[in-house]
Design a protein around this nucleic acid. Sequence first.
DNA 1: ATTAGCACTCTGGCTTAGTGAGTGCTAATA
DNA 2: TATTAGCACTCACTAAGCCAGAGTGCTAAT
Lengths: 351, 351
Amino acid sequence: MELDERKKIILTAIIQTYLTTGEPVGSRTISKYTDLNLSSATIRNEMSDLEEMGYIMQPHTSAGRIPSDKGYRLYVDELIRQKDQEVSDIKELMIEKTDRLEKVLKQVVKILAFNTNYATMIIGPAYHQNRLKFTQLSKVNENQILAIIVAEGNLVKNHMIELKEPIDEAELLKLNLLLNTQLNGLTIGEINLNMIQQMKQQAGIHSSVISSVVDAVAEAIQIDEEDMPFYTSGTTNIFKYPELAESSKASELIFAFEEKRELVEMLMENSLEEGRSPGADIQVYIGNESSIQTMKDCSVVTASYDLGKGMKGIIGIIGPKRMDYEKVVNNLKTLKTQLDSIFRKNGKTNT
Amino acid sequence: MELDERKKIILTAIIQTYLTTGEPVGSRTISKYTDLNLSSATIRNEMSDLEEMGYIMQPHTSAGRIPSDKGYRLYVDELIRQKDQEVSDIKELMIEKTDRLEKVLKQVVKILAFNTNYATMIIGPAYHQNRLKFTQLSKVNENQILAIIVAEGNLVKNHMIELKEPIDEAELLKLNLLLNTQLNGLTIGEINLNMIQQMKQQAGIHSSVISSVVDAVAEAIQIDEEDMPFYTSGTTNIFKYPELAESSKASELIFAFEEKRELVEMLMENSLEEGRSPGADIQVYIGNESSIQTMKDCSVVTASYDLGKGMKGIIGIIGPKRMDYEKVVNNLKTLKTQLDSIFRKNGKTNT
DNA sequence: ATTAGCACTCTGGCTTAGTGAGTGCTAATA
DNA sequence: TATTAGCACTCACTAAGCCAGAGTGCTAAT
């Protein structure tokens, strides 16, 4: 059987009404809603075909139809694309200017959650390609020194080091010099064991300090999943959609948000398999398409953003399958451009 | 009417059975459960009295009784106290040793949530009385310098400062010296405007840097409510208690956890009005006793902890009114002592 | 002061019947 | 051949009625 133009129109109509109502939609509704001027009986036949083809389904006999995952998929892939050009006339997202990246991220998820009425999350830039800017050792007291590590993008990391041997100012200065001449401008990939050995030799009795610093450097440049900056907002929005608000489902979802591990993993997938959806690194996972079992009744939309200097992060939106994909995608697009402009203009970011 | 010994026993019995079942408890149950050897009819009379006195109530005629807020209050205040000595044989809380305060806090809430099956939260130490240890300005590039501020308890704060005028190394050294000789060892209360003016004069053209640093110092020592370190765990535990799991209530509660502002305020009250409950800075708010409307169906137990050096923070547990107060209080007590021992031993903490 | 006994109340679960939305099929129509 | 009108049928949802169980309050007897 072939999916001709009329069937597409009907499918679109079904999906769109279902998006807003959340109720199964019947043939009569479509017959009136569209300007095809077809009787409900004809629509019924078409719907029967569409069901056979797997685009829609019935919750039970004698109920209206609801879109299947396959139906949604077609919808987001093909049927929405035409409107792609449409100006995204979304109100300015109003990101306050601030020099703290963390605050920006928190604001972004908050605004996005507010605008869309879905649950949102963001993971902060992973500094994959990030280069070391400078390091600084300062004496705190007799047996502790503080290592400050600044990477590109002004990501700052502090690390307290316990001393076995006391150290005087002159030696500290030497270590500082050593570290800065050797390491500055390198990415984590470029710092190899050979270099570290050399530095240790030159450091002599304080070689353990070098190890500590190098460890801290690694930690600073490459953030592990555990304390990857991850913020969420609008989790309670899921209560706005009856199909998700049911106690056990809501509980699972919110638990996922609290646990965050699974979500982070899911988002990370985005950066791997780019370019599935039309443009702009935006991806849509409908129901079981996402790798997490918990999300089988949800749709997840992810978008990667790029703050320049190799700082890439990912935004995600979680909502019911019947989410307003157009709106979400538009929101994400404008957000991307806004983030761009903010960070291209003033490069200030702390941690 | 007087609350004699027998009434107390019956009340205790009612509350304790209600704690475990969550169902209204009837006279027959009590008649069998206690060893008073009284018939249900007698119990009924006593219950009728207890109701008149306001300690228990009926959800509807011909249902059993449930404790009122007043009843719970009496229970936690008086009836539980006897067991106070009882060894808290709770399994060791198993806090991993780590030098990052943030991680400890996250662990604590997690463990506590797991142990108690309630929702938990913690606010990190506010460094009220905290003294400045040292500051350090480092040049990042032509028009940015990084200020590192270390306070007692090894709380580190970074602050990026934009320069209007370029600055050379010698000048930077001078500023560093100036800041350290003037400010080190002071609390925020001791740094007054007079000192700041003096320092600005000495700094000459770079006076604006001094302002920035002083601002950052203030921020470092005195954390504002906005980015007070605040962690939660086990929010989904509320779904385990039917009286809270109902969609609208659950939604409100979880929203409160996400918003966090109200919760922080509530916890802060703890530190103000100490010593309401028996020992050890532990306070119990039953239902409407707490200042937040959202919590009217919950009980909140808060405990302040002290890591020494003026670092005080607060832990909170939120659960249904029928929470296991004994267990919770015991958990909090052991936690307090454990936190104590950890931080008294090794004073390492970063941020 | 306590208890046995009884009438009464209320909830929750169950069944029943009725309604409305929607379908699928058949036969008539353009 | 594609469309439509018409009709029988299905299923979820709701309201009403009924019953059992748990629990109470009261009275009278111990």
